[in-house]
Every structure is written in structure tokens, then in C-alpha cells.
Amino acid sequence: MTLYLLRRVLLAVVTLWILSIIVFFAGQVLPGDPGRAVLGPFAAERAVRAYDHQLGVDRPLLVQYFGWIGGLLHGNMGTSYTYRSPVEPFIASALANSGKLALLALVIIVPLGIAGGVVAAVYSGRIIDRVISLSGLAGSTVPEFVSGIVLILVFGIALKALPITAATDPGASFADQLDHLILPVIPLVLVLFGYIARMARAGTVEALDSDYARTAVLKGLRRRTMIRRHILRNSLLPTITVIATQTGYLIGGLVVVETLFNYQGIGRLIFNAANGKDFPMLEAGVLVIGVVYMVATLIADVLYTALSPRLRVGAAS
């Protein structure tokens, strides 16, 4: 088990390293001349040079990369071009805000998705299955800004039932914060419901089709008991991994949702950094998202291993 964990962490580190190269490439190599990008086309050539030198982007690529990665390792994620100050505080507060939104989405989506998938599987081939499967599929491919706008139109403007911005005044009560987060959360939930329900359904259908399900039924168990005792444990295990994978997409959705609902999260931070060509901020934000994703999948893998007897014993011996 420890050996497996060690291997898994090592792989995650390698993946992160590759990720850092991708981000570095996109953020520092492709833009060519950040000084020009920031100062605009009309700035004097000398000012641009000076600014580039100040940023350090006129150094050889390898030197830049190691400087950047070395900084990261020391918790120094760079200096924002726009704010001319370290990016960490911005990232931290944005991450906390996004965390609230993402957590709320997960709390809603995980039970809903699993229940939907299991119900669809148990009644597979019937109307309820088609409804769940198709609505899940539709939800997962309609972009968040489309569903978000429909929601704003219906609940925010036509019915005036919910606030259409997510941001609250500092010190707002929990209930107030929640109220503001309801509309933004729904597009995220819509996108993720399909994925999770689909996986849960596939796993459950497979388990229901299995010989051991037949064994359980022929033992004389009630169908309900059979599903609870014999099916769910086997069918939901793979869903854990999917949920973790989907956290990545969840954060992707945040960019749109936070922009649409004017919420100061990591997505909006990245969006603003991109618009302002604030590459250090952009890189840091993207990398942080990658780390969150890696940690989520790592936890999922460990959980999966711990819950699956096959792997648990296999790793121990």
C-alpha cells in the first residue's frame, strides 16, 4: 500500500512537471515580448527593453524556466505585471472563493448524479432511464454560459426570485452567501450531472448484469437489499475516480460562471489576467488549477485502492 502510494505520488510529481513545461511554454515562450504586450504598441522601444529586462524575459529560456520553477518551489509564484506585486495573495483569496462555489456544486452534484445514475440503471431501458440519460448528456454539453443566461433570464429577471450576481458584501451571513451562490452553481451542476450519472449508470448496469447479482437474487434476497448489499459497492467504486476527474472540468466551468455572475474566484482571476496579458498571474492560476486537479485525483485513487478489496490485498502482498 505505501509502495503504491509512493509510486502514485511520484507519478503525480512527474505529471506536474510536464504541466509546468506546458504552462511555461504557453505563458513565456509563445507571447514573445511581454514588455510590448503590456506596454502596448506605442511604447518606446527602450522602455519595452527596460521593462523586459526588469521582468527577466530577455534571459535564455532555460535560465528563465529554472528561475521560474525555482521560485515556485520556494512558494514564490511571480510578480503580477498588472499589480506589480506578488501574485500569491490574489491567488489565495480567489482560490478560497472558488472553493466555496466548487464545494457547493460538489455537495449537490455527487449525491444527485449517483442517485440519477443508479435509478437509470435499475430501470434501464425504460422512460425514466432515457430521461435521465438524455438530460444528463444534454446538460453536460450545453456550455455553462448558455444555461447560465437562461437561468438569469428566468429566475433573476422574469421571476426576480434570486440574485443574479454571486458576489456578496464582505461579512455577509452564510445564508446570504448561499442565496447568491445558488444561480451560479446550477450551470456547474448541469454540466457535471451528466458525467457522474453516466458513470454511475454504466457501473450499476454492469454489476446488475453480473453473475454475482444473479447469485444474490437466486439466494432469495429482496431486490432492494440485493442492490444495496451486492451492487452499489461494486458499481460506485469507479464513479469515485470520475468525480475526481470532473473537479478539473468544474474549475474550467468556473471561468465562465464567475465571469457571468461577477464573482471573484480563480476563474475570473485567470480571465482578467488573460485580458490584461498578466502572464505571471495567468501561469500561476493555471498551475494552481492543475495542482488542485492532481490532488483530487490522487485522493480518489487512494480512496479507490482503500475501498477495493482486490487492490487493497494485492498491494499489501
Binding site: 453480473s210 453473475d211 454475482y212 444473479r214 447469485t215 444474490a216 448489499r229 451486492h230 459497492r233 461494486n234 477495493s308 478489496p309 482486490r310
Partner: peptide
């Protein structure tokens, strides 16, 4: 091996 529940 398939007639038995793998996780019990």
C-alpha cells in the same frame, strides 16, 4: 469466480 461478489 464470477458467481461470487468480488467485494464481499
Amino acid at each position: 469466480s464470477r458467481a461470487l461478489n468480488p467485494s464481499i
